[in-house]
């Protein structure tokens, strides 16, 4: 894109600057729209599983429900508790929201269609997702209220626990793909399964990793059944208890943007990203980003489905799953995968 702007007669620095801004807008704006619609979809799926109708009043089929909610929240008064630490209280939701958007910079939407094509892309994702916990912890502390604080403690412990095993799972993928660059990882999945299936999931050693990654990504985004941080029966609304108006909305947007990001990572790392599911010529007529969006939607459906059907974990069970099941298993698979590659590919 930079080259286009240079051709229009800009200096290289300005062209780079404008191109980057344009790229950011190209990702962020559709993402916001997608979040609004995905909230609607979430509610519809949930309702359908509970034999309810879900939102159906605002607009055709209730499609405009999210926008109406947004407008309502926007017009609300922002309440800041008098005992709260004002600055941090206001910054916390901004952190959550910003971090949720930042990681999208390295997700490839098509061959070469990526905002930042850096060779440590996956590490960047890990680094950014490890920042997400700050929005929650700071909110819990700055609210100066007991339920948010408990929730913040839970969130910190939970996210750190699952990040460790996510790290090991990603190592397996990196080992197989031979690169940290997400585009290269997608390319490495071309025909990875018997030369016809595009995706690492068709691999006996990586399929269990994908299952664990899916579960861990639910825990990492604090979605049901791991939504201990906002377990309403114990903690009111967790760290969001004291929030209202736009600051509350930012958490809402950030959470769903994070869920979409995790779906995108599932698609990119294990299901071939923007590649069509099968290595067949005519499937390439459909552009790559459509395939990616379809995969994201599929995974989002799984997220909603789980949320509607699985009861919430108890806190000690959550910790046990992370440390005593996923961590040893993912570690074992790092050994298995590297051993297998050592003998077959590099031996």
């Amino acid at each position: 894109m930079t080259q286009t702007f240079v051709n229009w007669g800009m200096t290289y620095d300005w062209a780079w600057f404008v191109a980057t801004i344009a790229g950011i807008l190209l990702i962020a704006l559709p993402l916001m729209l997608a979040v609004a619609m995905i909230i609607y979809a979430d509610r519809k799926i949930w309702a359908a599983m509970a034999l309810r109708r879900g939102p159906n009043v605002v607009g055709p089929f209730g499609l405009l429900q999210s926008f109406a909610d947004g407008l309502k929240v926007f017009l609300q008064e922002t309440i800041i508790p008098s005992a709260a630490n004002k600055g941090l209280f206001l910054i916390a939701p901004i952190i959550t929201f910003t971090v949720a958007l930042m990681a999208w910079a390295v997700i490839p939407f098509n061959s070469g269609a990526v905002l930042a094509d850096i060779n440590v892309g996956l590490l960047y994702v890990l680094a950014i997702s490890s920042l997400g916990v700050y929005g929650v912890v700071i909110a819990g502390w700055a609210s100066n209220s007991k339920y948010p604080f408990f929730s913040a403690m839970r969130a910190a412990a939970q996210m750190i626990s699952y990040e460790v095993s996510i790290g090991f799972i990603l190592i397996c993928v990196v080992l197989w793909a031979g690169s940290f660059n997400l585009n290269a990882i997608v390319e490495a999945q071309r025909g990875a399964g018997l030369g016809i299936v595009n995706g690492f999931w068709f691999n006996l050693l990586l399929f269990p990793m994908w299952v664990m990654f899916l579960i861990s990504s639910m825990a990492e985004t604090a979605r049901a059944p791991f939504d201990l941080t906002e377990a309403e029966s114990e903690l009111v609304a967790g760290y969001q208890t004291e929030y209202s108006s736009m600051s509350f909305a930012l958490y809402w947007l950030g959470e769903y943007a994070n869920v979409l990001l995790m779906c995108a990572l599932n698609a990119t790392l294990f299901w071939g990203g923007w590649l069509p599911p099968l290595e067949i010529e005519f499937l390439y007529w459909i552009p790559g980003f459509v395939w990616l969006c379809l995969k994201i939607l599929f995974f989002f459906f799984i997220f909603s489905w789980v949320k509607a059907t699985v009861p919430r974990y108890r806190y000690d069970q959550l910790m046990r799953l992370g440390w005593k099941v996923f961590l040893p298993l993912s570690l074992l698979f790092v050994v298995l995968v590297s051993g297998w590659l050592m003998f077959t590919r590099y031996g």
């Binding site: 850096i118 440590v120 590490l123 890990l126 680094a127 916990v133 700050y134 910190a156 750190i160």
Partner: peptide, 25 residues
Amino acid sequence: AEFIAMLLVIVYVGAVAVLFLFVVM
């Protein structure tokens, strides 16, 4: 040194500082 940069964020910001914050809070 992009690798070191990412490690700095993952290890120090993502893990060490969180625990630090935990204790200080």
